[in-house]
Simulated scan of single mutants.
Amino acid sequence: MPHLTTAGTTRTPTGAGPFGVGVPGIAHPLLAPTAWDELLRVSRGFVTPREAPRGVAGTVPGYSPVAPVHWAVLDVAAGPGERPDPHCLPAAARLRETGVRLLGHLDLRYGTRPFGDLIADAHRFLEWYRVDGFLLCRAPADREELPATRRTAAALRGLADGAHLVFGHGTHPHPGYAESADQLLTFAGPWSEYRWSQVALWTADHPPERFCHLVHGVPRSHLDEALRIARWQGAGTVFFTDRRDRDGDAWEALPGYWDDFVSRIGTGVLE
């Protein structure tokens, strides 16, 4: 998902609203069992005292300053696959039991994906994995594709009442897209771009929970800086990882500093 820096725009800080984590996808449970276990552990709101950030009070077992996981994306095979996956089925069920929204991965291909194929994939996700909504990856951002994207969103909400829809633009789209999505993914890209990025002025008309940012290649030493940028730009859901993008695989594992990441957000150290 490409990122476009919007030049000449500024934003008033939105204050100290709570952050949450959006997990854009983990590799298949057979390939990444530890990552799935870690996601479940944090989704239950638990870190041990040794994992709490320095200077934060609380040293008893069960101390849990972790940020809430707003959602996690299930991508079985560039979508739901051709049949229910016997390993993804229990992994998805365990995650949903924690209360975390499970989103199915749908690829819009910037508006070129046939409508019927999208709806068929959505049906499979709902029937097999009981997803709570969808991440519409590679969503178009221009005004011309807005009517078709609205149609898709309406159809998905018709399939599942209360479905949580995240439009994965990876850039700031035409503001009309905000009318059809629960959240807009307005940045997905490398730290080298994110640290100099700017935000579209129209986003100030919406609360932080309407926006999410995904950033790869973030060094541990720059986590606080990345969180400050996200807060300044008004993103309520974030995912930062030290892993670098190689053929689109940056999101297939949790960051090496996963506990540090969720603890920094959960304690509100920047507030």
Rank of each mutant, 00 (worst) to 15 (best):
V269D: 03
G8E: 14
D142M: 06
H70P: 03
F19E: 15
A120P: 04
G217P: 02
G162H: 15
P114V: 10
A32P: 14
G162L: 15
E38Q: 15
L103R: 07
P29C: 01
G58M: 02
F134V: 10
A139K: 11
L159H: 07
G266W: 12
G45A: 04
T5V: 14
P175G: 12
T59I: 05
R83L: 10
F19W: 05
H213Y: 05
E97N: 12
G22W: 07
L95F: 04
R101A: 13
R44F: 03
T10I: 06
D182M: 04
G104D: 04
G158V: 04
L146N: 09
L165K: 08
H70S: 14
G99S: 15
G268H: 10
E179F: 01
G99K: 15
V238L: 03
R109Q: 11
A141G: 07
P90Q: 08
H70D: 13
P175S: 14
D259N: 14
A181C: 05
H87L: 11
H174R: 04
R83W: 09
G17K: 03
T241S: 07
L184W: 00
A181K: 02
T9P: 00
G248T: 02
F167W: 09
V238R: 00
F134N: 07
L136V: 12
I265G: 06
P86Q: 08
R143K: 09
D182V: 00
P173S: 04
